[in-house]
Design a protein around this nucleic acid. Structure first.
Lengths: 194, 194
DNA sequence: TTTTGTTGATTGATCAGTCAATCAAAATTA
DNA sequence: TAATTTTGATTGACTGATCAATCAACAAAA
């Protein structure tokens, strides 16, 4: 069975397994054994490739972020006007796989972890900046810079807030309603500027 | 030293200590020893009064919630019109002690915990409902019910989102700016209705 | 033979939870 | 009032379980 070139495959399998394990368990206090079992390898192998649990977790949040960025870049290609691009950024944030309970649970766990892990915080800050700048760049073509900044901040907050609230699963706001609420905010704000 | 009637005092001291310990540590994986040390008693005593760590944590989130409710009720008494009351609800959410980094860290940790602890989730659902209904009741006097529902949902999401984003401490949105953003949303939405 | 992949076994640390024992105030009795 | 019993408060020491991390060893490929 042991063949050459396993490393990238194992790394990916372990990161994916970590994501699933975190989602199942609902927190980052999953064991390396859980993760390794999900990936079908021994716990020792996880340590072999990642050195420590912390590092595996960091790679996991990194992959979550990469996925979101790639989805955004792809979706953005299909949009032409600034207003369309704004809609795309909003829509991608609430996309099915981002809105899946497991994904939400993982994001939430990482937000909590960011209070302790400098590296995790750095990644989440990158996410926050990226969202803000994606919104800002397009808003600036539709309204004055100061208003653009304000609206970007508000829209980003609303997106994150809808996301968090979704994690409680009590008032199941669906995807379309979430998009609608955010779109509505942007539209009304822009209309108010004119 | 041992006197009668210590129980309520110890319970309160332990809950307060738990809150501080969670804030310091940035997560719920604090040890009973940490908490007990903060409270100046032995770990065994914490177990004696709460039975388990989970139960102590549940009491802690309960106390966080009670504080917020009391603050809201008090502040609401000073407001007369529905619009004033809306402002009060928004302002209390961003009140200094709610916005303190330690408090934010604790809320975040409990949100993550809610993925696993049924009881914790119940409390957070209560918080979400209370915020929604405080907003909704007043909005209904200012606009049609369906619009009121929508605006309440949006405002609640924005409040939670601003709160979460604060936890990253990267883009330090201050209290007044957060209030301004939320007020602006409500104002614009209401204006749009007329 | 060297390199890469892989694991079982083990270690050392950490922690929640338990328990028996102590101590001092309060209640009861003499 | 003095002697006693009871009760609540409190802890140190311990246990059992869990887990991250290590390591020596082996297997297959180069």
């Amino acid at each position: 069975m042991p063949k050459i070139g396993m490393e990238p495959l194992r790394r990916k399998a372990l990161v994916d397994a970590a994501l699933r394990a975190i989602a199942d368990h609902g927190s980052l206090s999953v064991t390396m054994s859980d993760i390794a079992r999900q990936a079908g390898v021994s716990p020792a192998l996880a340590h072999h490739y990642f050195g420590s649990k912390e590092q595996l977790l960091v790679e996991t949040v990194r992959s979550l972020l990469r996925q979101l960025r790639d989805d955004t870049v792809t979706a953005l290609k299909a949009a032409r006007t600034p207003r369309e691009k704004l809609s795309v950024v909003i829509r991608v944030s609430f996309q099915a796989d981002q809105f899946a309970p497991e994904t939400i649970a993982a994001w939430l766990a990482f937000y909590a972890e960011a209070q302790r892990s400098e590296e995790t915080r750095r990644f989440l800050v990158i996410y926050a900046r990226r969202l803000r700048s994606n919104l800002l760049a397009n808003l600036k073509r539709l309204c004055p810079p100061d208003a653009a900044g304000r609206i970007a901040e508000g829209a980003a907050a609303m997106i994150d807030g809808l996301y968090i609230r979704q994690s409680l699963k009590s008032a199941p706001i669906n995807i379309e309603a979430s998009i609608g609420l955010t779109e509505d905010y942007v539209t009304m704000q822009l209309r108010g500027i004119e």
